[in-house]
């Protein structure tokens, strides 16, 4: 993004970067940047907090008025949603033997969140959640990739499937009371659900593959750093 800022500025367009990794801003030195002390993935900070988001965006855009070249300013408030919310409750579901059954148990939570937010972030695989859950159950059982979309490989389909399944679980978790931190939701997803444990197991299986692309999938593209074992 900081490199893009340089190139747009060369074309005569003013730019501001809202940056999350300060050392990158210091190295690439975009013309104007606001460093925000937030988690990767949320440049405007807390979700459902339009007032703080507005503060971030407005402070960033006001940098177009500065004459200092380059400008790097720190945003001085932390994300209040980093703090654990003790009111939050994870979806109350029993243990299941398949991801399909787990998804079925989560469905009322997911549907409630969809209605509440009038949107869902599930959809990149372009296949229903039940089909995706069955796909991942089958991959886990048979230990081989399965092609269910003719335009993409089984390996890519698997990656899209787990992204959609994670989105489904995250939205189910958001249906609970309170305002959970991302850590609360991810701890539940990766440590308390069948999907989480199977993803961690599949990661290890893939990392032992003779196929470099499958090893790469296991190493980088299934489990986030914090929940790798």
């Amino acid at each position: 993004m900081s490199a893009i800022a340089h190139w747009l500025e060369q074309a005569g367009i003013s730019t501001v970067v809202i940056g999350l990794v300060k050392s990158h801003l210091e190295k690439i030195r975009p013309p104007r940047a606001l460093w925000v002390p937030f988690e990767l993935g949320r440049p405007l900070g807390p979700p459902s907090d339009p007032q703080m988001q507005r503060e971030v965006l407005e402070q960033a855009l006001r940098l177009v008025e500065t004459t200092n070249k380059p400008t790097l300013v720190d945003f001085d408030s932390d994300d209040p949603r980093f703090i654990e919310d003790t009111q939050w409750q994870a979806p109350d579901i029993e243990e299941h033997q398949s991801i399909l059954d787990e998804c079925t148990a989560l469905k009322p939570y997911y549907q409630r969140e969809c209605v509440d937010k009038s949107r869902t972030t599930v959809g990149i695989a372009k296949v229903s959640i039940n089909e995706l859950a069955t796909l991942v159950d089958d991959i886990y059982r048979k230990d081989e990739f399965i092609v269910i979309r003719s335009d993409i490989s089984g390996r890519l389909m698997f990656r899209l499937a787990i992204d959609d399944l994670k989105a489904y679980y995250i939205e189910s978790a958001l249906a609970g009371p309170g305002n959970p931190s991302s850590l609360q939701i991810h701890n539940w997803l990766w440590k308390k659900t069948l999907l989480g444990s199977r993803m961690r197991e599949l990661r290890h299986r893939f990392m032992k593959s003779d196929d470099a692309k499958i090893r790469d999938l296991g190493i980088k593209f299934i489990v986030p750093h914090l929940w790798r074992d």
């Binding site: 949320r42 988001q53 972030t121 992204d163």
Partner: peptide, 28 residues
């Protein structure tokens, strides 16, 4: 549809404006 798994997506799931603040910009 980002390839990386190493950033938070819970915030985007809850509120698109943390990533793509069209509504905040419109208000401004």
């Amino acid at each position: 549809n980002h390839i990386s798994v190493n950033f938070d997506r819970t915030a985007f799931a809850e509120d698109i404006n943390v990533v793509f603040p069209r509504a905040i910009l419109k208000e401004m």
